[in-house]
Design a protein around this nucleic acid. Structure first.
Lengths: 183, 183
DNA sequence: TTGACGTGAGAACGGGCGTTCTCCTACGGT
DNA sequence: ACCGTAGGAGAACGCCCGTTCTCACGTCAA
């Protein structure tokens, strides 16, 4: 099996397991079993579990932001694009197996013990914040709007994860609309 | 040593360790060492670690909401009381050793594996949401205002934890003020 | 054909940790 | 004084898990 293929299979398995059950409760042996890649190859590809975790967060970040951007770009009006972010959150929250934000969860799990995980989480959140800021700028709105929109989105992710409801997305969207109208 | 005293010492130690380093990375032996309560008594008081975790979250919930309410009640004007919540968040975020919301972190760490922890987290968040709703009602404002205020607060907690900054509290406060003014 | 090499399966190693057990000491009631 | 009980210190037990090692097998170059 090609090395690149093995890598993908490992990351696919790791993502499903880490996101669904938490990182610490998933052993390398479970990743081996779910991916079909032997332990030996697994350790050649990722010399330690922490590096697999890093790669998992990194690839998920690319995909997550890609999916968000793809959804937002289907909307032409720059103002509505901002609200489309919250529509996409609603879709995401409603997906089978949704269990909150992977980065917020990872921070809760490993924030105190792994600097590299913290760096990944910060990078992801900064990228998401920057993206929101770019949408605000494209709509010709004051830059100060980006921060509250970001907080609403984060609050919605956390709350949707904990309560298992998609409602926070709609609530955040309503609040975002009010903020947009008030300035 | 009195049983009640031992219990308090254990919970004090557990809270400091669990909050500061994460729950899974703190062994019962560390709790013993930090509390000065022997393993035997520790297991008499809390027959399993999960029950200690539950008790930790429960006691912290009482104290956390107590501190918040005490701060809010220093403000007489019911409208300003709502904003006082965010002022208190700023104080909290600035405390030495602040590392985000204990319940959000616990959910990230154990949400997938411990139903009892999930129940604690939900109970805490519901209580906080209900408290916000009561402040909104006392101010004679539409009940629909409570949800966005809650999301702003949650987003601020998460963001302050991850970035280590107190700024999200001020940003959330500003957004809350705008929402209050717009309705 | 042969031999070096990569690989897979799974055992093995080392350490950590939740929980229990052992043993010893101290003390309180009679 | 004696005995039963509680408690402390820490060893011990099981189990899990990250990581490495063993060994047998297949492959490909010379």
């Amino acid at each position: 099996m090609d090395s690149a293929v093995a890598r993908e299979r490992v990351l696919d398995a790791a993502e499903e397991l880490f996101y669904g059950r938490g990182i610490q409760s998933v052993g390398m042996d479970a990743v081996r079993g779910a991916s079909g890649v032997s332990l030996k190859r697994l350790y050649q590809l990722f010399p330690a579990k922490e590096q697999l975790v890093e790669a998992y967060l990194e690839r998920r970040d690319e995909r997550w932001r890609g999916r968000l951007a793809a959804h937002v770009e289907r909307e032409a009006d720059p103002e509505r694009r901002i609200l489309a972010v919250f529509d996409w959150l609603a879709e995401w929250f409603g997906e089978e197996g949704f269990r909150g934000c992977a980065w917020i969860n990872s921070y809760g799990e490993l924030g105190a013990t792994s600097d590299r995980v913290v760096a990944q989480v910060r990078a992801h959140k900064r990228a998401f914040g920057d993206y929101l800021a770019s949408l605000v700028a494209d709509a010709g709105r004051p830059a100060a709007l980006a921060a509250p929109l970001f907080l609403l989105a984060e609050g919605a992710m956390v709350t949707a994860g904990i309560t298992g409801s998609t409602r926070p997305a709609a609530e955040a969207r309503d609040a975002a609309r009010l903020l947009l109208e008030s300035r």
